[in-house]
Design a protein around this nucleic acid. Structure first.
Lengths: 225, 225
DNA sequence: GTATTTATATGACATATATCATATTTTAAG
DNA sequence: CTTAAAATATGATATATGTCATATAAATAC
């Protein structure tokens, strides 16, 4: 069983507040798991009873809307935690988590985490700050969905994807989303998303190489987002 | 200076975890304030450095979108707290708070609250749960904005307003929002909102008496939300 | 009480976006 | 390699929603 001390998750998440002793306990109770691209980590409505550490890979958090379409609420990448909200609220998860790439995740049972809350104030504050950050982001996204056009949201999302996940050697977005997923992130029909990508392509804002997307005119994309 | 012990906010908010001693300290450091309808409690970008207890009245939390329109993110009513996220994140507030009715609020400086976080674990957990609830709600609203039609959002919002704030003796919604505010809650143009209200009226779903709104067919409204 | 401003209402029209159909390309299966 | 399935692309069209104009009603100021 690998140690948690050097783990990337510890470096970037609320867990950075844990001391050596706590990390040893963590390493003892955690279970590791490989998740293949497309595999479900947990599903809306499930009782998860713990949190996941994302050691490697990226997943999408989705919510099923009444019209039957999935909406991507957030992407979670290596170094981050999953399932904190549900654990704290003591409720089933309100979002599904599905791997966008092969992933390495660790599961930490609730009992262990709750102990940290009691004894480690810095850890509590870290978790609180993370969730506050998520809330701020969610509020902002809500307003975007309500007030921006699909075109603006597409431009914004493309920039976000490059900023957050970077690009390959050929300058294409490192994170690989299908048109369908991109559409469900910006909240539109797949065809509309594809059509707008074509438009952006013709306008020289982006370049499409198969399903790869290369951002060509970032200033213009920023201006229109 | 009034005591906090019997305050409605204490009864319903995270503050219920405070003991007698803590409540006495609270009563000593708090400042009370009357806020007139339409008055601003704080504005997006401000440093608030504490939290507000809503002792009476209702306010809207709004966010200015890039197109210059305000979007109503949430309504906050008596018994609830304001400004927790910003205080925890140690950032300026990301939303503005404006009174929808005359209000009574108390301000508690950050220093005092942070002390509770250190010493009272139950209080911390309560705050965390509140924010987790807000986050869940925000995610859900985000998906609504992205996937539902304006008509569906209007129906849903009318039901929410009646559920949350109740109705007058004449069955009209107790909370009085202008058409403009209603529109900025559902995320649409004022004219579209007015038009849909007219449609709902003609269909017998609601009744319009001046600017008062009476819900007539709740099952149908539910079905279409 | 009258005038002025503001909110509500409705029509006409423009535009963004969804939907349905179908072609083409890519990926997966046998 | 060949075939079937899935993803991407594009056209045609319908529909929802925004915008601008204007009318009426209500609230506020004087």
């Amino acid at each position: 069983m690998s140690k948690c001390e050097q783990c990337i998750v510890r470096e970037f998440s609320s867990l950075k507040a844990l001391n050596k002793e706590e990390l040893v306990k963590l390493a003892e109770c955690k279970t590791s798991r490989l998740v293949k691209k497309g595999e479900v980590i947990f599903e809306e409505g499930e009782n998860v009873n713990g949190i996941f550490c994302v050691k490697d890979g990226v997943c999408k958090l989705t919510k099923l809307s009444q019209n039957g379409k999935d909406h991507i609420v957030k992407l979670v990448t290596k170094g981050e935690l999953l399932g904190q909200r549900s654990m704290i609220s003591e409720e089933p998860v309100n979002l599904s988590a599905v791997a966008l790439e092969d992933m390495q995740v660790c599961f930490i049972p609730k009992s262990e985490i709750m102990g940290f809350f009691d004894k480690n104030n810095q850890f509590s504050m870290n978790v609180m700050r993370t969730i506050c950050g998520d809330l701020k982001e969610a509020d902002s996204q809500m307003v975007n969905m309500a007030q921006k056009t699909v075109k603006e949201r597409l431009a914004e999302t493309l920039l976000y994807l490059q900023d957050t996940f970077g690009k390959n050697e050929d300058d294409s977005l490192k994170i690989q989303l299908s048109r369908d997923e991109l559409a469900s992130m910006i909240g539109t029909a797949t065809e509309s998303c594809i059509r707008l990508l074509s438009d952006f392509n013709k306008l020289g804002l982006i370049e499409l190489k198969g399903k790869k997307i290369i951002l060509k005119d970032i200033p213009k994309l920023k201006k229109m987002s």
